[in-house]
Simulated scan of single mutants.
Amino acid sequence: MPIKSHMKHVLDVAAGRKMAQLCITGAKILDVYNKEFFDADLLVTDGAIAGFADPGTGEAERIVDAGGRYLLPGFIDCHVHIESSHATPEEFSNLVVPCGTTTAIVDPHELCNVAGLDGLYYMLDATEKTAVQAFFMVPSCVPATSFEHSGATIGAKDVVQPLSHPRVLGLGEMMDYPGVINADDEVLEKIIAAREAGKVVDGHSPEIADKSLDAYTSVRIRSDHECESVQEMHDRIRRGMYILL
C-alpha cells in the first residue's frame, strides 16, 4: 500500500471514522514511557497501532480477548551472534519470536571469521522473510587479532559496500581497542567508512579507563557491552556511550 494511502487509512481508524482490522481487548498494556500498565482496548490496522478504546468498547473486524494477559511491545535484542546459538537464522527466528523478541541486531562476527562477507550476505538472505526482523552490523575485526588463523580477512575497503545495505546499521563491535587508541590507519578507515555512510559504530572496550577510554570514545563509538563493574558503566555513560546489559 502506498505510504499516503496507509497514513489515511490509519488516520481514519484513529479518528473513529473507520473500523479497525484488529482489536485486542482484556489486556494490561505496558506504557514503557510512563513505566506503568493501563487497561484499554488496543486498535490495530494495516500493521499499525491506531489508538485505544475504553476497556470492552473497541470495535474491529476481528476481536482477540487477551484474558487479562500483559501486552508489551516486541523485545529488541540489541546485540546477538546468531551463529553462536548453533541454529540457522530461520530456526533462531522460530525460537525467539514466541518468547517476545521481534527484532534482532545481529553481528555475524564468528561466521564472517570463517566465511568472510559471504557469511554476512548469507545471513541477510536467510532473514529476508523471517518473523523476526533482523538488522546487521558489519564485523569490524576479522580476524579478531593478528595472532588468529581465520578463514577470511575483512579490510577497510571491504566494509564500504555492505554498509550501504538498508538492513545494515553500522560497524560491529570494535574489539581492536588498542588500534583505536593508537590511531591505527586501517582501524580508523573502517570507522570513517561507517560515519560516511551515516551508520553507527558499536564498541567493545573491556577494562579500559581514563585517557584510553577518552581516546576510544572520541571517534564516536557509541555502545559497549563489556562492562565488568558499575564504575566502568558510569565511566562510559559519562562519555556518551549506551550500555548494553
Rank of each mutant, 00 (worst) to 15 (best):
M174A: 09
M233G: 06
E91Y: 13
R17L: 10
L169Q: 02
H81V: 03
M123Y: 08
D12V: 01
A27W: 00
V10Y: 00
L42T: 08
D158M: 11
M19L: 11
T101R: 10
D77M: 02
I192D: 11
K129R: 14
V132G: 01
D107K: 02
G67H: 02
G198P: 06
V201I: 13
F92R: 05
A156G: 10
E226T: 04
S229R: 14
I154A: 05
V142E: 01
V13I: 15
M7L: 12
G198A: 13
H204V: 04
M241G: 05
M1N: 08
L124D: 00
R236F: 10
G119N: 02
G170W: 01
I154F: 03
L163H: 00
Q21W: 05
I154R: 05
D54A: 15
F75S: 01
T103P: 02
I192Y: 13
D202L: 12
K157D: 12
G56N: 01
V159S: 09
E91P: 01
G26L: 01
L169R: 01
I63S: 07
L22N: 07
P98A: 06
Y242L: 14
H149C: 14
S146H: 12
V13D: 01
D235E: 11
V159N: 02
G68T: 04
I154P: 04
V13Y: 08
A115I: 04
G58D: 04
D107A: 11
M123S: 11
R17N: 11
R236Q: 08
R220H: 10
A209M: 09
H225V: 12
S218L: 11
A152E: 05
F135D: 03
R17P: 00
M241P: 06
